[in-house]
Design a protein around this nucleic acid. Structure first.
Length: 895
RNA sequence: GCCCGCUUGGCUCAGCGGUAGAGCACUCGCUUCACACGCGAGGGGUCAGAAGUUCGAAUCUUCUAGCGGGCACCA
């Protein structure tokens, strides 16, 4: 006999299959031999090379894998392309830290050696996550794996840069930017973290030059006053109107600065007068532009005071300078007051250092023309379609509308070096290569721009650069645009929108039809999981404890809403996996002879036993629901559908109803057919489940005594059989049988009610009872033909009555359709208990009929509600009345 | 400050205009020949609060409260 353990061991199944799948090339689209196959493609959001698997990844990958496996089994030419991002700042930080341990800085090595070092680091530590992705069971095509720093992708980056530059969309300019004094690089607006900060608001008095008094300004950063070149007031502020144009003497510096009028100033805030430091504040910078103010840089790239701040301050750290400024102003009696104040401070997203706004020469990308492409696409074609549409479509379009130029240069060594060369240190030549630059410049006396590009610049090209762009490759023609992007909401701006813009610009097509935005897995207190909080759950540990498949079900059911992590949930899906295992175990233990039956459901469906017609109907409806729900990215819904079909319909009822025939000791054609049918339903269920539970389903499928090769989708015929490439079950409408379902519902109701009587009357489990059934002629056949099953599941002898008397000492139940059930319990029945039980039933019905009566008595309802609704309620009312009558008679019989 | 989301049984979540659902937890009974990670039978919610629209609202509208998130140039 077959030896199958009673408990499912996920580890074993996990070890058994992935390598084989990968080695056999099952993940690659080439496995599909149908030249007319529809195409399904996804590019994996490239995780950072510095990263390791976290819940967010596991969540997204599960959903991507579910869709990929589903489409692959449905015969699509399917590509899920994996890869990694070089993650400029993060990676450089990582390697810099490693160097620091050796007492070195990157400058000790020099740029070339440093880059080499990063590549070595990548070789050694980078990409751990790739093996973790394998563990998840992700069916990605490793033969197409990409890395943003690969030569082909770097080439795409240069091509993109040159084209945008030639069109005037990329330019070099001197502007105020977000500067990280720690990482020594500029950052884009999206890489800035805004954090609330408790601080102080300092009120400083600036005297008029003519000695007639002073004006008071409020600031959170007094040290910047050293670089002030004006004070601004609102032009409509009556308090200050007469002072506009007046000259002040900037304390400490003794610089003469004007009072200017600018709409930016809010009269209500502070004193209504603002000190203006164009070199160190983005707003002041703009005021400065409007009023042609001098920019005095008093803070340098290390956040230290410059010579321009004066000899006493030069070289001081910005916070030391703050103290000294305050001290001096106090001494001069120009510090009016200091109040506690909470405000938002800008920090570096990576290293959390407080940023310093600085004026600096950087490369920028003009976004308006690109933005317009994206907005037009959304408005005209509704692409990409966000799921859920609310709120993400609006979040996306609102952001696009307010888009500002993108700072694309970074003062890093790790990244794509900007393809610009300087001739005589001034003239700029932008070219795809040094050779091209030399040709354009007419000299080889060129130095390349030292800056690299923002990591997101290369990510923005990911959906087409990974497929070969700018070459016109077959992959590009086949797989672009991709089908769907699955991502977390925090990179809609950083990444999603930029892919759309570059995709439309360079490919003239949106990069993906749909964007599915996943929910977030929160900790049990509802907090986001984060490294700094240390409240993250490691998916790999969950895999170890509960198995990959159970974890995948848990994650899939998160769907698009934020969900608190609950280990109990995983546990229940672990139990589900075990349930599947044991159902299969039962089928296998009772499979002898089944293999002789090739078409277990062949012939006229109407002639099948009720439970067979019923399970086929349920199975096909399930396939239909799954298809619909997956089409809507309703991952939570699909998991529920599959869970309940398998556990409730298949295990609780179909297996139980089949047992009588299947477990028969003697070999017979009936037994073999029943066994084959059971196996067939199990086998199809495994296929339905496979996208969610790849390991368990493959493990079991391989063990089934079925003709595996015949189950493969035709696009894969001839390959070594695997459930991965078996045909995904689709609904066959001919097998949906509402009549069978209704009949089966009656049988289930009957069995449940008898079981209820047994439990309530405390009938011993082993004790046989008699089940008397009477009712209208049309409902009885279902009970008649299934009496053997009913007897088995109720441990009762079924007697279909023809108007015979029911013994007084019976427990009774009234079923829908007016069916009455009685279980004679002479000597066992407690009449009081039974009367109470029936009275409770009656109360329930009375409550409902009361409600219905009110509703049906409402003339407005009858007049305005849809006819079908009214009819439905009337039918229900009739049904209740019938049951009430029967209950009354039963109660009477008991008295 | 502006915008958005969430608030359903003890817990985690579905449902989103027509008699309140699931899993876990809980109660009772079961070593019933696949499974105690199980089987059978139960108990438990005025769907955050208020007002409104509607014949009818957990479901639509408005407001309030609590929680969470995004955006923002208030020095």
């Amino acid at each position: 006999m077959i030896d199958i353990p009673k408990t499912y061991d996920p580890k074993q199944a996990e070890q058994n299959h992935y390598e084989r799948w990968e080695a056999a090339g099952f993940f690659a689209p080439e496995i599909n031999k149908d030249p007319n196959a529809p195409v399904f493609s996804i590019v994996m959001p490239p995780p950072n090379v510095t990263g390791s698997l976290h819940m967010g990844h596991a969540l997204q990958h599960t959903m991507m894998d579910v869709l990929t496996r589903y489409k692959r089994m449905s015969g699509f030419r399917t590509l899920w392309l994996p890869g990694m991002d070089h993650a400029g700042i993060s990676t450089q930080l990582m390697v810099t830290r490693q160097l620091k341990k050796e007492g070195l800085t990157r400058h000790d090595l020099g740029r070339e050696k440093f880059e080499e070092r990063v590549w070595n680091w990548k070789q050694e530590y980078g990409g751990q996550i790739l093996n973790q992705i394998r563990r998840e069971g992700a069916s990605v095509d490793w033969s197409r794996e990409q890395f943003t720093m690969n030569e082909n992708l770097s080439r795409a980056v240069r091509e993109c840069f040159v084209r945008l530059y030639d069109e005037g969309l990329i330019y070099r300019g001197n502007r105020i930017v977000n500067w990280c004094p720690n990482d020594q690089t500029v950052l884009s607006d999206l890489e800035v973290l805004r954090e609330p900060q408790k601080g102080k608001l300092y009120y400083l008095r600036y005297p008029f030059k003519d000695g007639t008094g002073s004006i008071t300004v409020a600031t959170t950063r007094p040290e910047t006053m050293l670089g002030d070149t004006a004070v601004a007031v609102n032009p409509d502020d009556e308090r200050y109107q007469s002072l506009i144009g007046k000259i002040l003497v900037l304390p400490i510096m003794n610089r003469e600065i004007p009072i200017v009028a600018d709409d930016f100033v809010e009269s209500e805030f502070g004193t209504g007068a603002v000190k203006v430091t164009p070199a160190h504040d983005p707003n002041d910078y703009e005021i400065g532009e409007r009023h042609n103010l001098e920019q005095v840089a008093v803070i340098d790239q290390y956040a230290r005071m410059t010579e321009a701040a004066g000899p006493e301050f030069a070289g001081l750290d910005r916070y030391q300078a703050r103290e000294l400024v305050v001290e001096k102003l106090e001494a001069l009696e120009l510090l009016e007051k200091v109040v506690d104040y909470e405000f938002a401070i800008s920090k570096c997203e990576r290293c959390k250092t407080v940023l310093e706004p600085l004026i600096s020469t950087q490369w920028f990308c003009r976004m308006e023309p690109l933005r317009d492409l994206a907005l037009a696409k959304l408005r005209e074609d509704g692409k990409p379609q966000f799921v859920p549409a609310v709120p993400y479509e609006k979040v996306y379009s609102d952001w696009l509308e307010n888009l500002r130029d993108w700072t694309i240069s970074r003062q890093l060594w790790w990244g794509h070096q900007i393809p610009a060369w300087y001739k005589n240190d001034s003239e700029v030549i932008v070219a795809r290569s040094r050779e091209e630059a030399v040709e354009k410049a007419g000299t080889d006396q060129l130095t390349q721009e030292q800056d690299v590009l923002d990591t997101w610049f290369s990510s923005a090209l990911w959906p087409f650069s990974t497929l070969g762009w700018p070459e016109k490759t077959e992959d590009l023609a086949t797989f672009y645009p991709t089908s769907v992007l699955i991502t977390a909401r925090d990179i809609i701006f950083l990444w999603v929108s930029r892919m759309v813009m570059t995709g439309l610009k360079f490919m003239s097509r949106e990069p993906f039809a749909d964007v599915y935005v996943t929910g977030t897995v929160l900790d049990k207190h509802g907090q986001r999981m984060s490294k700094t909080k240390g409240n993250g759950i490691d998916p790999l540990e969950v895999f170890d404890k509960y198995g990959v498949d159970a974890t995948r079900l848990t994650l899939a059911s998160v769907g698009s809403t934020d969900t608190r992590w609950s280990e109990r949930q995983v546990e229940s899906y672990r139990n589900f996996a075990n349930k599947i295992w044991n159902a299969a175990r039962f089928c296998l233990l009772n499979s002898g002879g089944a293999e002789t039956v090739t078409e277990p459901f062949a012939g006229d469906a109407a002639s099948l036993p009720l439970h067979d017609r019923w399970i086929l109907s349920r199975l096909n409806k399930t396939a239909r629901d799954v298809e619909r729900q997956l089409g809507q990215y309703d991952f939570h819904g699909v998991v529920q559908t599959l869970y309940h079909f398998f556990w409730d319909d298949f295990c609780d009822w179909y297996i139980e109803l089949s047992k009588a025939t299947i477990t028969s000791e003697t070999d017979s054609p009936e037994r073999n057919i029943a066994r084959a049918r059971l196996l067939s339903v199990l086998e199809q269920s495994l296929r339905l489940l496979h996208p969610f539970m790849p390991y368990l389903t493959e493990e079991l499928w391989q063990r089934l005594p079925v003709q595996h090769s015949r189950l493969l989708h035709q696009a894969y015929s001839g390959v070594e059989p695997t459930i991965m490439l078996a045909s995904y079950p689709h609904c066959d409408d001919a097998l949906v049988d509402d009549r069978a379902e209704a009949d089966m519902d009656s049988v289930i109701e009957l069995i449940s009610r008898v079981r209820n009587i047994r439990a309530e009357m405390s009938i011993k489990p082993g004790e046989q009872v008699t089940v008397l059934i009477r009712g209208l002629r049309q409902v009885l056949p279902a009970f008649e033909t299934n009496s053997a099953q009913i007897e088995r599941l109720t441990r009762g002898k079924v007697v279909i009555q023809d108007g015979q008397e029911v013994p007084r000492a019976s427990a009774r139940a009234v079923l829908s359709g007016g069916v009455e059930v009685a279980v004679p319990l002479e000597g066992l029945i407690d009449f009081d208990v039974e009367r109470a039980r029936l009275s409770k039933e009656k109360e329930k019905l009375e409550k409902e009929s009361g409600k219905l009566a009110t509703q049906l008595g409402n003339a407005d309802f009858v007049a305005r509600a849809p006819v079908e609704k009214v009819d439905e309620l009337r039918a229900r009312m009739t049904e209740i009345a019938r049951q009430q009558t029967a209950l009354d008679q039963n109660l009477e019989a008991l008295s």
